[in-house]
Amino acid sequence: MMKNKTSTQTPKQDRGDVTREKLLTSSIDVFGRYGFDGASTRMLAETAGVNLQAIPYYFGGKEGLYIAAAEHLASVIVGHVGDLRIAILERLARLDGEGKAMSPEEARDLLTQMAQRMVAIFVSRQSESWARFIIREQMEPTEAFERVYANVMGPMIGMAGRLVATILDEPPQSEHVRLKTLSFVGSILVFRMAHAAMLRQMSWQAVGPDELDTLRRHVAELVAALGGKKEGQR
């Protein structure tokens, strides 16, 4: 009897997971395009291709779906960079435990890997809907921004900051390191946030393998430039 019960429940559970996934994935795009107020529950349900009652059933309402979409977005981004982030954090933790410092050369190599992974994600078509969602939250932050920042942006900027601090041989929490880190991250984000301007400026129709290789080399040059002569020096 237990076997029969499981066999009848599993498909229902699978259907529920598919419905939730459809709503989460499509709502990121809808909320990004129209904002929370402009996106009606009917629009959200129709875009996902699900029943209107699925929103209150799975998320309690539009607000619950909005927060869940932010968390889903964070988890998707982490899925693209999680392995590298874990490797870097484990390396830093190991060195901290041994009382050793990371060399500037290793920090540059890890920051280059991190930045090249980021630029590849940011120029992908998939990230278009992510950018719309996050830009809206940057302009008028809500609880959704807190979820994305806490799970993705904050940890990534913090990790980049430790690498930048090592390269500059300065304390990670210094104002200079934090500003330098934000400027560096911004120089990567621009390839998504100003994607159309980038294509126009570079006379590219799209970002294919050759264009991506060019951007990877450019990112490596940005990392190499860190720690050069300070402003005002000759």
Rank of each mutant, 00 (worst) to 15 (best):
A93L: 08
E90L: 00
S27V: 09
R91F: 03
V81L: 07
A206R: 07
S7L: 14
G208M: 02
S124R: 04
T6C: 10
D213F: 03
V177H: 07
G82W: 01
P11K: 10
D169G: 04
T142I: 11
G154N: 13
N151M: 12
V223H: 06
K5A: 13
R108F: 00
M156V: 07
L92D: 02
E231Y: 03
R216C: 10
L92P: 06
P209H: 02
K180S: 15
M156G: 05
E128H: 04
K5I: 12
L110G: 03
E98G: 01
N51G: 06
A165F: 03
P104R: 05
G35C: 02
D109E: 15
E63D: 14
S27P: 14
M193V: 15
V190S: 02
S26W: 10
G228I: 07
I135F: 11
S7A: 15
E71I: 04
Q173C: 00
G32P: 14
G79M: 08
T8I: 12
T47Y: 07
K5V: 11
I28T: 08
G64L: 07
W130A: 14
V190A: 06
R217F: 09
E105W: 06
E46L: 03
I28N: 05
K22F: 08
I157E: 08
Y66H: 12
G38K: 10
V81K: 02
K100I: 12
I135V: 15
